[in-house]
């Protein structure tokens, strides 16, 4: 009887967790399509001819330099997206895993809602020089 109960509880938990995780991934993917893909393209490669940066095999490198973790949320396309901080955190985590899993190998800490909410409060007025200084730091990475 006891075993039966735990099996039922386990099954119920799996039913709760399973679809929730998939639903979030689908929501993140849909949010990417609706908020990012128009310019960054389906595979995240962007468009060099129009200065649209590539996310593919690059985005995660920002996490390795000082100020980069903040930048990924404060960049206008992210900070000003018509998304709640919860969904922006979920979307950014999804993008990092989808487009640049290689850079995430060493202990990636996913963005949390609260962190994203706080980072969005701080507006970066002129983000171009901020980005170029980060890219310089990335180029110096080993």
């Amino acid at each position: 009887m006891r075993e039966n109960n735990s099996a039922v509880i386990l099954a119920a938990l799996l039913m709760l967790i399973g679809p929730a995780a998939i639903a979030d991934e689908q929501r993140a993917k849909a949010n990417y399509m609706l908020n990012c893909q128009g310019c960054h393209t389906a595979d995240g490669s962007g468009h060099q001819g129009r200065n649209i940066p590539t996310l593919k095999n690059y985005m995660g490198k920002f996490l390795k330099v000082e100020g980069g973790r903040e930048f990924l949320i404060q960049v206008p396309g992210a900070a000003q997206a018509l998304l709640s901080s919860e969904q922006l955190a979920e979307l950014t985590n999804w993008m990092l895993r989808e487009f640049d899993p290689k850079s995430l190998k060493d202990n990636f800490i996913p963005y949390q809602t609260q962190e994203v909410h706080q980072l969005r409060q701080h507006k970066v007025i002129d983000f171009t020089p901020v980005r170029s200084s980060l890219v310089k730091k990335i180029e110096l990475l080993p």
Partner: peptide, 21 residues
């Protein structure tokens, strides 16, 4: 053009919102 704008439209056949590029 590889760069585009993306929105949603409701398909009357199933009432679902589809993402349109």
């Amino acid at each position: 053009s590889p760069i585009t704008w993306i929105g949603t439209c409701r398909n009357p056949a199933d009432g679902k919102d589809y993402i349109i590029s």
